[in-house]
C-alpha cells in the first residue's frame, strides 16, 4: 500500500478514506445492543474500500511499469549519447567538459545499478542527472568550437595557411599543416592533399604556447630542422622544428615586458613532430605526436627545410 500511495495517490487516498469510514461504522454498530446491531453498511463500506484498494494497486502497478520503461529508455539514450560526446570532447580538452562527462558517466553507472535493483525512480533520476551533465558538456564543446570560428587569431591562421599552400604550389615541395582543433596533420603539395593523420597535442590542449613548461603546442610557421630516426629519439621518429622562431621570441619578449609572463620564464624549445601518438588524448609537453605507422608514412615524404604551419584551426575558405 505504501508504494501504491506514492505511485497512485488519488486512488489510494480514496481507499484509505472509505476504510476509515468502514471502521467507524463498525465501531458504532459494535456499541449498539445485539438486537439493534446491523453491520450491513460497514460491510458495504469494507467492500468499497477493498475495490478502491485494488484499483490503487492496479494503478500503482501501471505507474511502476511506466516508470520502469521511462528509466530503461533514458539509460539507453544516455548510454548511446555519451561515447559520441566523449569523442567530440577530444577536440577541446577542457577540464569542465571532462568533469561533466565523468559525472554523466557516474550517473549512468548509478542508474544502471538502481535499475538492476528494480529501483526505477532512482534509475530515472540518475539518468536525468546524467543527461543534464551530458547536455552541459555538449553545449560547452560547441561554445568552445565557436570561439575558434570567431577567434581574433583566425586572420593570422588564414594568412599562414594561404602563404604555406602558395609556397608549396610555387616550389612543388610538400608542406605540413597542423589543425589543432581537428587534431589533424595534413600533408599538402600545392592544392593537393596527400595525406591526413590524427595527432595528439600538448596537455595544454588548444592553448597556444607562450613559455617553457606550459605544455601547449605552439601556433606559427616553422620548418623542419632535423629528421631523427629510431635510435636518435625516445619517441620512435622525430621531426625537429625551429621553435621558437623570430615571431615567437618577439611575442614572448612583449609578454614579458607587459608582465604577463614571469621574469624568470623562458620561451621554451624542442618542439617536434614525433611518434608514440595515437593515444586519442593530449599528453605531450607541446609536441605533435603521431602513431608510429603514420610517422613511418610521413617521414619519407618530408625533409629538412619542409614548412610546418601549426594553426588553431584551418579556416575552411582557405583550403583548395
Amino acid at each position: 500500500m505504501a508504494e501504491g500511495v506514492a505511485r497512485a495517490p488519488n486512488q489510494c487516498a480514496a481507499a484509505q478514506s472509505i476504510l476509515v469510514r468502514a471502521e467507524a461504522e463498525t465501531r458504532v454498530q459494535s456499541r449498539r445492543s445485539a438486537l439493534r446491531r446491523d453491520y450491513d453498511q460497514a460491510a458495504r463500506l469494507a467492500l468499497e474500500a477493498r475495490l478502491a484498494a485494488e484499483t490503487c494497486a492496479f494503478q500503482a502497478g501501471a505507474a511502476r511499469a511506466r516508470t520502469r520503461e521511462r528509466a530503461r529508455k533514458a539509460l539507453a539514450d544516455l548510454s548511446t549519447a555519451l561515447p559520441r560526446a566523449a569523442s567530440l570532447s577530444r577536440h577541446v580538452g577542457d577540464s569542465d567538459v571532462a568533469e561533466d562527462l565523468v559525472q554523466a558517466e557516474i550517473a549512468l553507472g548509478e542508474g544502471k545499478v538502481a535499475f538492476e535493483r528494480s529501483q526505477f525512480e532512482r534509475a530515472e533520476d540518475a539518468a536525468e542527472r546524467g543527461r543534464a551533465r551530458l547536455a552541459q558538456a555538449v553545449s560547452d564543446i560547441n561554445r568552445l568550437f565557436d570561439t575558434y570560428a570567431t577567434s581574433p587569431r583566425r586572420a593570422d591562421w588564414r594568412r599562414w595557411v594561404k602563404d604555406t599552400l602558395r609556397d608549396s604550389a610555387r616550389t612543388g615541395e610538400p608542406v605540413i599543416l597542423v589543425d589543432k582543433l581537428r587534431r589533424e596533420l595534413l600533408l599538402y603539395r600545392g592544392r593537393d592533399e596527400l595525406a591526413a593523420y590524427p595527432v595528439d597535442l600538448g596537455i595544454g590542449g588548444l592553448n597556444s604556447k607562450i613559455r617553457a613548461g606550459d605544455d601547449a603546442t605552439p601556433e606559427g610557421r616553422y620548418r623542419i630542422t632535423e629528421v631523427r630516426g629510431p635510435t636518435q629519439t625516445h619517441y620512435y621518429r622525430a621531426l625537429m622544428l625551429d621553435y621558437p622562431n623570430a615571431d615567437d621570441v618577439a611575442r614572448f619578449r612583449r609578454l614579458k615586458r607587459s608582465g604577463r609572463v614571469a621574469r624568470g620564464d623562458d620561451v621554451g624549445s624542442l618542439i617536434e613532430i614525433h611518434g608514440h601518438g595515437g593515444r586519442k588524448r593530449d599528453w605531450t609537453k607541446g609536441c605533435v605526436a603521431l602513431d608510429n605507422d603514420d610517422m613511418d608514412s610521413l617521414v619519407p615524404r618530408v625533409r629538412v627545410g619542409t614548412r610546418v604551419t601549426i594553426v588553431g584551426t584551418i579556416p575552411e575558405e582557405v583550403l583548395p
Partner: peptide, 25 residues
C-alpha cells in the same frame, strides 16, 4: 520532454561533429 531534451543533445552533438569534420575537396 525527454525526447526533446535527447533530440537537442543529439542535434548539438551533430553540430559539434560538423564543426570539426575533415574538410576536403
Amino acid at each position: 520532454e525527454a525526447a526533446i531534451a535527447a533530440a537537442d543533445t543529439a542535434l548539438q552533438t551533430a553540430e559539434g561533429n560538423l564543426k570539426v569534420a575533415p574538410m576536403t575537396k
